[in-house]
Amino acid sequence: MNILDSIKEKARAKKRKVVLPEGTEPRVIKAAKILVEQKIASVVLLGNKDEIGRLAAEAELNLSLVRVIDPSVSELIPDFAKTLFEKRKHKGITEAQATETVKNVLFFGAMMVEKGMVDGCVAGSVNTTGDVMRAAIQVIGLAPGINTVSGAFMMVLPKFRDEENKIFMYADSAVVPNPDAAQLASIAVSTAETMYKLTGQEPRVAMLSFSTRGSAKHEDVDKVLEALALVRKEHPELKVDGEMQLDAAIIPEIASRKAPGSDVAGKANVLIFPDLDAGNIGYKLTERLAGATATGPIVQGLRLPMNDLSRGCSAQDIVDVSAIAVLMKG
């Protein structure tokens, strides 16, 4: 069983519920059909009921298997608006503005997560990442002890050395262009948690750099070392080391020379890149040159799960991310 099949099987066992705000998008309808027919998760679709009904008929989705809500006329609006107003009044939002805002499908979906009505929200097939993240941050907020949202990619290599279907988690590969030390520490902690929740593997976190254990001196290296110190202070239980070059992180023979005595070097499965340039280039190099499967970005750092999609996603991508989202709840 590959890792995505394993994730879907775990999601199936959890018997959880996901809201798909872009319910009038044909790919979302097809994904909902797969999710409910394969019993991966229960589904709530948001949008105009007539339009959803038409698309469901075309896709042969039995609407009795899902819940359909039109946020523009929902009886939940007054309660949702009151909650958003209380959360955002310090930013100057008015009660009228809060009422209109929660009629937006992204904010409505995020509020369903916040209220515990569903276990996760998945959007982005139509809306931009910025719009999805804005709703997530304003309604759900950041997890305790975390100061930034980030995006991880789960990389599955067909073969790495003697191991088939080797799994690495890369971050940040999607969100924060140039994280400071505190943000980099949060990204490391979030990614370790993502690794454990999705795979069950113990995370071994490498804080990557162009330097290994002082082989070079530069302010960029100093940032990585500061982040490492923060992670170790706040999470002494976590296996994390740095600064280290990629080869020292994943190749035991090189690790033994460059970072002897490390319980991470040569065995790392969570790779934390110093900035978005490196993280984004790194995952795409691995995908294109090593034939790896890249799943993501997996949004992490939120208090509750709300995941983004590429606007070029397929229905199967939406299914896979939905399974990930409900597992991210823990």
Score class of each variant (00 low, 15 high):
125 S>I: 11
189 V>C: 00
100 E>F: 00
2 N>A: 10
290 A>G: 05
77 I>G: 06
174 A>V: 08
118 V>N: 06
1 M>H: 14
46 L>Q: 08
133 M>Q: 08
165 N>M: 11
51 E>I: 14
196 Y>F: 14
306 M>S: 08
157 L>W: 08
132 V>K: 07
143 A>G: 11
196 Y>W: 14
23 G>H: 11
133 M>F: 12
1 M>P: 13
309 L>N: 04
268 A>R: 03
249 A>K: 07
315 A>C: 07
217 K>F: 02
115 K>P: 05
175 V>H: 01
230 L>C: 02
84 L>H: 03
281 I>T: 04
67 R>Y: 10
220 D>I: 12
256 S>G: 00
103 K>L: 05
202 E>K: 14
10 K>F: 09
193 E>I: 09
96 A>I: 14
254 I>P: 01
303 R>F: 07
74 S>H: 03
277 D>E: 15
102 V>Q: 02
163 E>P: 00
209 S>M: 12
19 V>E: 11
288 R>P: 04
77 I>W: 05
194 T>I: 10
134 R>L: 06
65 L>Q: 15
258 K>A: 06
259 A>G: 07
44 V>A: 05
185 A>E: 06
29 I>S: 10
322 S>L: 02
180 D>S: 04
196 Y>K: 15
286 T>E: 03
60 E>W: 02
11 A>K: 08
276 L>C: 07
184 L>A: 08
314 S>E: 08
237 E>Q: 14
45 L>T: 00
3 I>R: 05
316 Q>H: 05
20 L>N: 07
229 A>H: 05
209 S>V: 00
61 L>C: 04
27 R>D: 06
71 P>N: 08
21 P>N: 00
265 A>C: 01
30 K>G: 01
45 L>P: 11
264 V>R: 09
91 K>H: 12
211 S>F: 11
194 T>Y: 03
74 S>I: 09
242 G>Y: 13
